[in-house]
Design a protein around this nucleic acid. Sequence first.
DNA 1: TGCGAACGAGCAACTGTTGCGAATACGGTC
DNA 2: GACCGTATTCGCAACAGTTGCTCGTTCGCA
Lengths: 173, 173
Amino acid sequence: MRNPDELASAFRAVGLKVTPQRLALFRLLHDNGSHPSAEALHLAASASMPGISLRTVYQTLSDLVAMGELRQMQLCAGSARFDPNVDDHHHLLCDRCQSVRDVYVDGLGAVTVDAAAFGGFRVRATDLVFRGLCAECTECADGAADTLDPSIRATRPGSPHHHHITTTKEATS
Amino acid sequence: MRNPDELASAFRAVGLKVTPQRLALFRLLHDNGSHPSAEALHLAASASMPGISLRTVYQTLSDLVAMGELRQMQLCAGSARFDPNVDDHHHLLCDRCQSVRDVYVDGLGAVTVDAAAFGGFRVRATDLVFRGLCAECTECADGAADTLDPSIRATRPGSPHHHHITTTKEATS
DNA sequence: TGCGAACGAGCAACTGTTGCGAATACGGTC
DNA sequence: GACCGTATTCGCAACAGTTGCTCGTTCGCA
């Protein structure tokens, strides 16, 4: 998403007002790669903006999403996560600590075309989520990978092939 | 997932009991391609099992998921959806009516990965969701495809059309 | 500086899900 | 077929995340 100043202008341009609360959130979100929940943002915002209401956080996030400056996603049960990176990218989700990382995946194009062929379904967006254990959790769990309850089981990882994948972020959010 | 009889045996084998409520749910889930929510299943179950508790539905679904007979997923805000098809497959999600269809995607191997490329992230599962408009909704929306506001509100009930989702299922669930 | 519209805070309401406890039913055994 | 121990059902309360509502406040254009 754009920087706080640009967002302020954008807000005014649509008739939305720019308040200290909103500015605080703009700043917190700018270049934030942690995919925070509303609650997490509220907590963080409370530092610079004591007394800010959770309600206000939800409101502002909702505005940002509506303006296309923020991406909202429901990666798992529980709270929604927000991603200021609105580029075309995908996610790594840790089953243990719920951390999320952006990942840039090439080669989905062919897959998308194929899927579009399915019974007239018109694909608007393609979400790809890799679930597993992040590096930190892999260390901690250390050989005890099965302490992790496979409660919400998803697709088994197919045959491991490798191709163009970048975890680095070439574009600014 | 396996058929009701097999599930009954499987349940007994782990020390779980087989009750009429559970059997009703086994039957409802078997070969069910509609990716129902707990609530939807409760509603359906109430037909053959009047008075069945929503609590029991959740309990049984949870057992099935733990046993790997059922897949639970959080495709969007709102309730979890359950998929008796535990094969390796992916999903088409209609943004408008929230219907879900299974889709078998080839060529994902080209995208699936070994841990190294993810900086130590160990991939356990790969979830691919195509979001867009199903054939029925494309028809209904007809040219007015943009009546669908691409905004936030992931799960506004709106007025979902209730069409039957015929699962393209080449494999046994 | 003034005014009207937009906003923020706080709380209630709402949805989806889970915890708890008492009564009940399954199912192995006699 | 009856018995008994234990899992199960059910209803309700509790809980988390999110949204609706309302009133006093603030922004921002003039």
